[in-house]
Design a protein around this nucleic acid. Sequence first.
DNA 1: GTTTTTTTTGAACGCGTGTTCAGTTAACAT
DNA 2: ATGTTAACTGAACACGCGTTCAAAAAAAAC
Lengths: 196, 196
Amino acid sequence: MARTQGSHSGTTRPRVRAAAQRLFAQSGYAAVSMRQIASEVGVQAGALYNYTPDKQALLFDLMQQHMDDLLAARALQTHGAGPLAALEQFTRFHIRFHLDRPDAVFIAYMELRNLTAPHFEQIEQLRRRYESELTDILRTGQRAGVFEIADIPVATRAVIAMLTGVTTWYRESGALSRVDVEDVYWQMVRGAVGAR
Amino acid sequence: MARTQGSHSGTTRPRVRAAAQRLFAQSGYAAVSMRQIASEVGVQAGALYNYTPDKQALLFDLMQQHMDDLLAARALQTHGAGPLAALEQFTRFHIRFHLDRPDAVFIAYMELRNLTAPHFEQIEQLRRRYESELTDILRTGQRAGVFEIADIPVATRAVIAMLTGVTTWYRESGALSRVDVEDVYWQMVRGAVGAR
DNA sequence: GTTTTTTTTGAACGCGTGTTCAGTTAACAT
DNA sequence: ATGTTAACTGAACACGCGTTCAAAAAAAAC
């Protein structure tokens, strides 16, 4: 009737997050109820409030965690020797990181609308930070005459959109390995920025 | 208390669609209630059912209309003289068409999750049809030695993702004119497919 | 073994939702 | 002017929602 045997917050908390992430990615934040998440975890809805103050906080947490992870992982990357190597590295990093976390990526992109304004602003800042990594690479390459780009902010957005689109179709069981996918995207990105 | 003066289905029906489109794009299908849509139109929620059998049909209708419009507009395009001209034309058409309808594009991309399975399948078919236009161009260009592409299906998706991403950031009041935007994207697309 | 803390249940609150439909008014047809 | 059709209102139905919290059981601490 009350506490379930074997329950422990160290176990339940991550399961709540995982269930929320999966369901939000699958059906969308607004379409998923707390009772559904709870059911996925195997608890009643009231139990979720031990792990999140409310539904919005749960979403924000997931999105912020994703962005923090992305920026942290990016910061650990060694940066390539020149603009071209840097761009290649960014491209491969982006594909690799995003393919490891399709649900988190999907939510980070698709659920911005469901954030409150302050939360939205916070996530946007993190996104802009990540984008500026690419902008810097492109700018350096343009200055060095390695790239030929008509408009760097537009190019940044175009490349990010292209790369991030990979999560919408890639399947592990598909004909292409991850390295193949990285290679194809890299070839396209270098071409898109007029690399020589 | 009953029929509103001056009301006419020829007026109300398109207003229902327009309101739904705007609100769905703004906040997402699941987060928007029929009462909100009705309020936007200036009627009570029950009145909406004169114009749509249910909420899902309203969404499906909007998405299908968008895809039909896209394919119809595409069919009216004269096709370029060779693969390169065809690709340029496709690129400029895509940007132009999508920039004219940001809300419809947004919904067509973001609300797939909220369709019932049969509806989803129908929209997917229309999407695949549109994508095959680009695939055909790329294939022709590859065969003719005009393009150099490692994987045509991947390249198709990458280019579509890049191009469609324009709607997420473009603003009429921005520094760039539409032709500027088309030009930038065209330069990047041709580069991405290794056009020579 | 007893007490305290942890983690859950279950019930309930105060809404909101999509939808239906009888009734009412406006517009149209005769 | 009268009758019919069109287009709406308003109320209600049968849920579902996010959230709260007292009570209960399990685990940990003493």
